[in-house]
Design a protein around this nucleic acid. Structure first.
Lengths: 335, 335
DNA sequence: AACGTTTGCGAAATCGTTTTCGCAAATTTT
DNA sequence: AAAATTTGCGAAAACGATTTCGCAAACGTT
């Protein structure tokens, strides 16, 4: 088994040197057409395939890029992976994927493993639990090209691909205001999450823009389906005073819609609800969820593009770039 | 940049030979404790990391396994990836992921790329459009260990991890029958997909078991949300004669439920609907979808286990194994 | 003291490529 | 016809590790 044909075997079989075979297969001008076609035909016939490992070792380039992602089973992240995979495939790169499981230790191990594998570059979204950035710093000092996306690490300077969460929060809130709402409840994420803070700040900004007073009690920490259930009574107690809800993510928004309907409220007639982060669940709920669209696939592709730009110009120093994806409102029925 | 320290550098710096360094780092008994600790300390201090590429080339083993998956953005598949990633990580393997996008040509290219990379083994779920199996046959003849999961290729003998789709189909149909239904429409997959055939056969078996006549017109090729919309009129024309629907997957089931409700039917009172393949969308729809549970994460882990079993016993011939995951009904409200 | 055995290490081959350098033979130039 | 150039190819050194083989020095045995 695994009797892989090598360039050496071909050379022996054909009575030429390995250098000649190598050159013939690469169409080097030093080799005569006659020899070239002899070698090429034989190689094709025998289905010769070069050993990528040997090649990478020799060329000091593995044509592989690494990806560290907090969680694969997650619509946004899997969309990003898909975008990354599509582009790397087209460009002839391979993709090694690691999952940090939101765990700093594992993230650090993954990073080391990728570097050990001599990947040409790394794309990362940081784990939630990461508070120490030494592993990133070390990799950065090693000079390995990195692109952060979505959950960026601001302790080091790298290329970045991010959503404009602030603008997303502002847009969502503005959308509700333009529909005539002025008492808007915000179901927010935990305050230590940058993303959540930005969305909340966008919410606040929209209120300010339209001269709507900000009320602290209209901002609730509530960012999971479960939490909606736990906080049901609290939320319902506020409902008589509000005419819209902006939830920090879709599953919270959907859970809220369902909770409201079970309690006799109509969406969007009585209360408008808007979410954040367009996934497959948004189209399933009734009424279909109006939400802020997150373009995971495109962000993935952009991350690859930034990385390749660096890989293809290894000695040209390029300023670190940050690509910002401005979200758009995906209008459906709930708001 | 990228001034990676090699074993040669260490040898030179310490005035010993490369072989000594290599052996010292691997704790070979031929090396004296004194030399060992000298070398080890230096290596640690300088943060030496072996070059995996060189190692793989020398050892003829890359410690990498390849995965070809039809679509990453898909709850079942991303669960499988997660299970695969978790176990490969724990066992010290790396994972190269390719996405065939349900495209035979790309599947074949991916396979070749993985083989070129000298992965130690490959885990695959076949693309929907694959009708020619030569690429698999060639890989099989090359002797590269393969494990198929879910969408297996029955043209070649390999290890397999499958759902018992037949039993799933039978269970789902039986469930409906026991609820008192006897005119059950089956929305089926394309006939070239084994999975779809098995689910359909399970459906037929249940009907036979309960002496319910089989009617060809109650089996429709319709396995996507879009197709439900295209075939809406056809489906609605059958509705007066039926009391239940068994859909080959969840998104079809959900699209059907919504289509039915828009047309004035109540689920499950007028028509019961059951799906297949429990994902997050099943809990979102109203009424929540009763469906056949698919354990993607566990299947992924099992695929890795089968593969490792072969990789760890390279010369022990093991009979090809097929691991069958028997599904269970996840009872919710729609059936 | 002569011989055998162990200890500790180095030289060199190997894995499969690419690439620099060199060198005959063929060809062109003078 | 001699000199200069070009053509076509091979030898060998990388890339970074492991591993077989060999060999000197130190040690133990009679």
């Amino acid at each position: 088994m695994h009797n892989k044909l090598t360039i050496k075997d071909i050379a022996k079989k054909l009575g030429v040197s390995v250098s000649t075979v190598s050159r013939a297969l690469k169409d080097h001008p030093d080799i005569s057409e006659k020899t070239k076609s002899l070698i090429r035909n034989f190689a094709n016939e025998m289905n010769y395939r070069p050993n990528v490992l040997a090649l990478s070792l020799r060329k000091q380039k593995s044509n592989t890029i690494g990806l560290i992602i907090p969680e694969i089973v997650h619509h946004f992240f899997s969309s990003v992976i898909s975008g990354i995979e599509d582009l790397t495939y087209r460009e002839g790169y391979n993709l090694i994927i690691c999952q940090s499981n939101e765990n700093q230790f594992r993230e650090s191990t993954n990073l080391q493993a990728l570097i050990d594998h001599r990947v040409d570059g790394i794309i990362i979204s940081m784990s939630k639990s990461t508070t120490n950035f030494n592993h990133f710093k070390k990799a950065w000092e090693d000079g390995i090209p990195m692109v952060f996306f979505d959950r960026i690490c601001d302790a080091i300077e790298t290329d970045r691909v991010v959503m404009d969460d602030f603008e997303g929060g502002r847009l969502a809130t503005e959308y509700l205001i333009k529909k005539g709402c002025s008492n808007i409840l915000h179901l927010a994420a935990a305050p230590n999450l940058l993303i959540g803070r930005n969305r909340r700040d966008g919410y606040l900004e929209a209120l300010r823009q339209y001269n709507i007073p900000i009320r602290e009690k209209f901002i609730l920490k509530c960012d999971t389906r479960e939490e909606v259930i736990t906080m049901q009574n609290h939320i319902l107690s506020l409902v008589p005073q509000i005419d819209a809800i902006f939830a920090v993510n879709d599953s919270t928004a959907i859970a809220t819609i369902q909770m409201l309907r079970r309690n006799g409220y109509r969406v969007p007639e009585d209360i408008r609800v808007i979410g954040f982060g367009d996934g497959p669940i948004a189209t399933i709920v009734e009424p279909a969820l109006t939400t802020v669209e997150q373009k995971g696939y495109d962000m993935g592709r952009e991350a690859v593009r930034l990385l390749l730009q660096r890989l293809n110009n290894p000695n040209v120093p390029i300023d670190y770039q940050t690509r910002v994806f401005t979200p758009t409102i995906k209008e459906r029925e709930s708001a």
